[in-house]
């Protein structure tokens, strides 16, 4: 037997390698290769034509791509910061709750339990200019008598999507920051009070430095998430109106499946992945620095 000549560890790991290769390595290699071909789903034989970096040149020189790229970075920045601030506020409020804190913590996680597709549909309905709850509410309160075109005006549409994204994911920050708050030793806070700090100064100099690593963990997780933001956008606006909410992944999806230009789409996707990695590395660095700052022993 040929197999028996392999050592036991290799033999035992072989099935795992096989599965990993089938589901990760091969598709990855294939997609990477196809980004160097003019592969179209409608012309399978195009997979065998090697065109070098032409797809990448096309991507780099495409204004559509760079607009979507820039919009994605903007979207990421706004969404992450809003989520962080809201999550911090939420965590601070919940940590103050004397009774029912468990219940509040559970409720806080509700948005995470919904599929992003459902969240997309829900907010699509809420922001609908004719029958949506938001316009209805604004009009009922007499704040406006217009039907505000939330999902139709380009700027408002990106705003609406951001709201949906923030709603569904603020709890990631809230949960992680709350974990930090609950794990935080009380003594340094009390020492700060005795040392003359007002509550605001206590937060600024003592509590916030301690929470920073937790915030950066959330940032790292979320930067991966948002950089592949697709479902909510797909449902709510599908990149419209007139591509005003096109993000990297909706553009990639449209190029791959709408235009059937798989090779080009794969080239774009690698740009998107690099963007994700850059964000993650950035936050990871910040996290390491913040951990060192507080002398964390984890």
């Amino acid at each position: 037997m040929k197999l028996s000549r392999l050592s036991a560890p290799v033999l035992l790991l072989f099935p795992a390698f096989l599965v990993l290769a089938a589901v990760v390595v091969v598709p990855l290699a294939l997609s990477f290769y196809s980004s160097f071909t003019p592969f179209r789903l409608t012309k399978p034989e195009s997979l065998y034509v090697f065109i070098g970096l032409r797809n990448y040149m096309t991507v780099v020189s495409s204004s559509d791509f760079w607009v979507a790229f820039g919009r994605t970075v903007l979207f990421l920045t706004i969404a992450l910061n809003a989520e962080m601030l809201l999550g911090l506020g939420l965590a601070l409020l919940v940590s103050k709750a004397v009774r029912g804190q468990r219940l509040l913590r559970t409720m806080m996680m509700f948005p995470m339990m919904f599929s992003p597709v459902l969240v997309g549909f829900q907010f699509k309905f809420l922001f609908n200019d004719n029958i949506g709850l938001i316009n209805n509410g604004l009009q009922a309160l007499g704040l406006t008598d217009q039907a505000i075109p939330w999902l139709i005006n380009g700027n408002l549409a990106l705003f609406s999507i951001t709201v949906a994204e923030v709603w569904s994911s603020t709890s990631v920050f809230a949960i992680l920051i709350l974990a930090g708050l609950l794990a935080m030793p009380r003594d340094p806070i009390e020492a700060a009070h005795v040392d003359g700090c007002t509550p605001l100064q206590t937060f600024r100099y003592i509590i916030w430095p301690y929470l920073m690593p937790f915030a950066f963990i959330a940032m790292t997780i979320r930067s991966l998430d948002v950089a592949r933001a697709y479902d909510i956008v797909k449902i709510m606006t599908d990149g419209g109106p007139a591509k005003r909410t096109e993000l990297l992944w909706t553009l990639v999806g449209r190029t791959a499946y709408g235009d059937a230009r798989m090779g080009l789409a794969n080239a774009m996707a690698y740009f998107a992945i690099v963007l994700s990695i850059l964000f993650t590395v950035y936050f990871f660095r910040k996290l390491a620095a913040a951990r060192q700052q507080i002398g964390a022993e984890w």
Binding site: P185, D187, A191, H193, V194, G196, P209, Y210, Q293
Partner: peptide, 20 residues
């Protein structure tokens, strides 16, 4: 009065130093 207005210092069992 809050602690900061009492002009006191306190040394805690767990030291309570600011780790950062």
């Amino acid at each position: 009065l809050p602690p900061r207005a009492r002009n006191i210092s306190m040394v805690f069992q767990s030291y309570a130093l600011y780790p950062h």
